[in-house]
């Protein structure tokens, strides 16, 4: 017995979490929104999700083989990237668009940085803005709900052009009865998934709530009919805000480590989103807002370190910055 003992550094027990478990459960939390997307937009939505996920997994595997890394396609992270990318696409795009986007997301968004945990930008959003830059026509042509595939505008685009979008009731917006990307329209389904993540403690309120509140506040203050006249509820319920705030801004890899940093990150996302929506050239700004704040994450981390035990706020900053 004495010659066969395992010697390792403490601790000798671990909790039951694993990267794989987290990734699969976050993917699971996105299922209601995807299902709602398929119900709202029909089978075309399903195929977009299908191609995006399959390509993400295959691309991950090929690149891991090529770079002689351990092939870990079943850790759920590629599936999650594929899902999130698909959720950010309209349902009526050609089948190759999610394939190209997904490949770009995995290759340029993730693997060039060294794979899981190393990337600076959210891979799915990297893929999305790439598609947006290359094929804007496909990316901004939305169909109205139903199986008749009549193209229509998203509520935010309607608002931008007409300054008013009264044909959408809050209830329509909540259940997703309007044009938009596959995974972003059904707020109710997204909230179910988000609630699951909250219960499992995989996400905390710090990023999503500050993000949403900031967008709400700014769109209320800078309303179309003068200050404090904005329809903040409309802004919260439309576009990719809920999807982005709960599922993409909270991406562990690309968001700050401390709660303090996360509050700054969420607020920053909110400000940029509101600025783009209110004064920018696009009706929607969630993707760009999150990507820009991703870039700011290292600097946020640097200035929002935790207070070390036994130090006061100032001395700890001086000591470690």
């Amino acid at each position: 017995m004495t010659d066969r003992l395992i010697v390792a550094v403490s601790p000798h027990i671990h909790n039951k979490e694993s990267v794989r478990k987290i990734m699969w459960l976050v993917s699971l939390s996105l299922v209601p929104a995807g299902a709602a997307g398929v119900i709202i937009f029909g089978w075309s939505a399903f195929w977009v999700i299908f191609w995006a996920v399959i390509t993400a997994v295959v691309a991950e595997g090929i690149l891991q083989l090529l770079t002689k890394k351990k092939v870990a396609i079943l850790d759920g992270s590629a599936v999650l990237t594929g899902l999130l990318l698909a959720y950010n696409l309209p349902s009526n795009v050609p089948f190759w668009l999610p394939i190209v986007g997904s490949f770009f997301a995995i290759a340029i968004g993730k693997q060039v940085f060294g794979g899981l945990g190393q990337n600076i930008f959210n891979p799915a959003l990297t893929g999305r803005v790439f598609l947006m830059a290359c094929w804007p026509k496909y990316m901004t042509t939305f169909v109205n709900p139903g199986y008749d595939a009549i193209t229509g505008a998203t509520p935010l685009a309607v608002l931008r052009h007409a300054k008013m979008a009264t044909q959408f009731s809050y209830w329509d917006l909540l259940i997703g009865r309007h044009g938009g990307c596959i995974g972003e329209v059904c707020i109710l389904a997204l909230l179910i998934g988000a609630a699951f993540l909250f219960v499992r403690k995989y996400i905390s309120w710090h990023i999503p709530i500050t993000y949403i509140l900031t967008v709400g506040l700014l769109t209320f203050i800078f309303g179309p009919n003068g200050y404090f006249s904005g329809d903040w509820m409309f802004h919260i319920l439309t576009g990719g805000l809920i999807l982005g705030a709960f599922f993409m801004a909270t991406d562990y890899v690309t968001s700050p480590l401390t709660y303090k940093g996360q509050i700054i990150f969420g607020t920053g996302c909110g400000v940029i989103t509101a600025v783009i929506r209110l004064w920018g050239g696009y009706p929607e700004g969630v993707s760009y807002a999150i990507l820009m704040m991703n870039a700011a994450t290292p600097i946020i981390d640097r200035f929002t370190k935790n207070r070390i035990y036994g130090t006061n706020r100032n001395s700890s900053r001086r000591a470690i910055s």
Partner: peptide
């Protein structure tokens, strides 16, 4: 595995 920056260690560290 690679660190995914989930921040669990940062939240729980009793030494801050």
């Amino acid at each position: 595995e690679f660190c995914i920056r989930c921040g669990a260690c940062v939240r729980e560290c009793p030494a801050g």
